[in-house]
């Protein structure tokens, strides 16, 4: 895991503030440092771990799924961000990437799979179709997956470039990391990646 430990810090924990933990003290490699002590909350430590080990579920529906595969294959290689373990079983995954258009026939299946995922779970809506049915505003499609499942990150594009999806993933990681990990979670305001 190559995430620098300085990411543990909130913006308010800047080293200039008296009493704040200095990032140098939290050098990678663990809890060595000058004092030999790292201070953080369990919440943050769990958040850091969760954010950097996302297991997405392979939920390819249509064209966007091809770009999702491109994201995980050579060149774009999503494993750089710790999210390459694509699982086909909902029970082993915590992120559902809805890649593609969702038809009314598929909608109950999607909900069922979402319900089978263990908490905590997140949903990334990939592409115009998943977010709002895109160019197909008609009888056959669900006009946005947010009518079926709560969405955390919207990635626009038809199809979004793999880079855009990775950007969405990083935004989601930030969101996971700074969320409350125990008890009631913060209200999840969805994030939209700027095209």
């Amino acid at each position: 895991m190559t995430v620098p430990f300085s990411r543990w810090m909130r913006a308010s924990d800047s080293p200039e503030q008296p009493g704040a933990v200095r990032p140098q003290a939290l050098d990678a490699g663990g809890f060595s440092g000058a004092s030999g002590v790292a201070l953080t909350t369990v919440d943050r430590a769990v958040g850091w771990a969760r954010a950097n080990s996302i297991w997405p579920m392979l939920f390819g529906l249509a064209c966007c799924a091809i770009e999702m595969m491109a994201m995980s294959a050579a060149k774009h290689d999503v494993s750089r961000f710790g999210a390459e373990v694509f699982r086909s079983s909902p029970r082993q995954s915590d992120l559902m990437i809805v890649a593609g258009r969702l038809s009314k026939k598929m909608a109950p299946v999607l909900r069922r799979l979402y319900d089978q995922m263990p908490e905590p779970k997140w949903v990334l809506s990939m592409g115009a179709c998943a977010s709002c049915s895109g160019v197909y505003n008609n009888y056959a499609l669900v006009q946005g997956v947010d009518r079926i499942v709560p969405v955390d990150v919207y990635v626009p594009g038809c199809p979004p470039r793999p880079e855009a999806v990775i950007d969405g993933l990083i935004k989601l990681q930030a969101k996971i990391e700074y969320d409350k990990q125990f008890g009631k979670q913060f209200e999840r305001a969805p994030v939209t990646v700027k095209a």
């Binding site: 038809s103 197909y136 008609n138």
Partner: peptide, 11 residues
């Protein structure tokens, strides 16, 4: 099939 029925022809 039909889990990806998009209604393209109607569209």
């Amino acid at each position: 099939m039909g889990y990806l029925h998009t209604g393209i022809e109607k569209m």
